[in-house]
Design a protein around this nucleic acid. Structure first.
Lengths: 249, 249
DNA sequence: AAGTGGTCTAGACCACGGG
DNA sequence: CCGTGGTCTAGACCACTTC
């Protein structure tokens, strides 16, 4: 016996809904009902597939849906676990927002260097290609859980010696304190991307998972753009709060 | 012979990278190189899997990655096609943004009615549950391509008779013109969600695809919230532009 | 009737990590 | 060693559209 035939009774039971959708719904209910609480491990895939009457491939597809929703996360050698609710972050200062949400913010510096701006960075900052910029990449965490990878570029002429300071905290605070900068506005482009293997590893998730990518520019009151950044958030763990004034039309 | 053994030569060729990642990269290159241009149909899955030396299941997984990236889209009975680039929308007026991007904006009204506010809507608008609200749902399009589903709620006492007017265009324009409202600011929460079957159908994409969900409130200069809305964008077709002033700290 | 993508199966091998 | 999730296969049936 092969294919649909064996599962026909289940599939038909809910008007042609695919088995993986039905299975995902079944597991989602167990989470919502509190039968499975955050941190709880699910049964092993091989066991669960038998219990639910589908093949392992089909069960995995259902688990993939829940993983994309951020309701479960997987560990290749330990199992599949129910996830904590998403962290809600207001656009702005990461450190401040994590603290406000009751978390313990962290910033791990991956690298930092001075270099000439390539085409992309130069266009972002509005300077000629080859101009000196400070570049740095940090992993931002809440309670040690990685939530974002930030890659940031600064005009070296506007913030000389930036890299000699403390790069483990809020950079905007550092900039305001050391250089008397007045930060006036930001412009960001937000899109959903598919994580590559490197970023997935840095964020502690799996390759091909969803990411929220924020490509942003920050401007001084004088109008100059001093910061260009690409922030990559875990789409399954974060929601972003955006407060804006509306132009008077 | 079964499983990994037959494909070992390919997998090993790029240091353990899974076949579906390699295949996705191969097809992505063909698109970037202009070998496959927007609108072009890809070969049928059964043919392409033979050409690339993988099983159809593995090829489909690679195509799923490209679909999530918004680089291809599928039609169950016609085939798989290379997609147009994403539409970039500034947060604010949908109609205005589509026009600016060179598209032809459209709004299809799905339904509109007056009803008492449920708990969620009442909390969103900051009014007692049961207060009368206008509720409406529209599909927003650019050149007939559905990009978003908007479900919007208004305080009936602030915009009496709203539903008698033109609901096919910019509602903010309508509100400003008919009721002399001064729209001051918006607050939105953005998250990535998995589309259910209904929303996927409305957006012309497949179930379990990614969606950008914007839950937002709009406030008058006087401070009242007059609009509560849940906007659902196609994550593979849209990127959002966010311009903000930075609080003076 | 023929073609497309969508779903599903049963079983295999892999890498990895904790007893 | 053994259990976990991750990957992959070969082939099947389905719904739907187009010819």
């Amino acid at each position: 016996m092969v294919g649909r035939r064996e599962t026909e009774e289940f599939t038909r039971a809910k008007s042609g809904e695919p088995a993986y959708v039905r299975i995902a719904g079944e597991l989602r209910s167990r989470i919502d009902d509190g039968e499975l609480t955050p941190g709880t491990p699910l049964p092993a895939e091989r066991d669960l597939s038998v219990e639910l009457g589908v093949s392992r491939m089909t069960l995995r597809r259902a688990l993939g849906v829940l993983e994309n929703e951020g309701r479960v996360h997987r560990d290749a050698t330990r199992g599949t676990f129910v996830s904590e609710p998403r962290v809600r972050l207001r656009l702005g200062s990461f450190s401040q927002e994590i603290a406000r949400a009751g978390g313990n913010p962290g910033a791990e510096l991956l690298w930092a260097e001075e270099r000439p701006a390539d085409e992309t960075v130069a266009a972002g900052l509005g300077i000629p290609a080859g101009s000196p910029v400070y570049a740095l990449r940090r992993v931002r965490r809440s309670n040690d859980e990685p939530l974002a990878v930030e890659t940031t570029y600064y005009r070296a002429d506007l913030v000389p010696g930036l890299l000699d300071g403390d790069l483990a905290g809020s950079l905007w605070d550092e900039l305001r304190a050391r250089f008397d900068l007045i930060i006036a506005r930001t412009s960001a482009e937000l899109e959903v991307v598919v994580l590559d293997a490197d970023d997935a590893r840095r964020l502690g998730t799996r390759r091909a998972a969803g990411g929220l990518q924020l490509t942003r520019r920050t401007f001084l009151a004088a109008g100059d753009c001093f910061e260009f950044a690409v922030d990559l958030y875990r789409a399954d763990r974060v929601s972003l709060i955006i407060d804006r004034a509306v132009d008077a039309e």
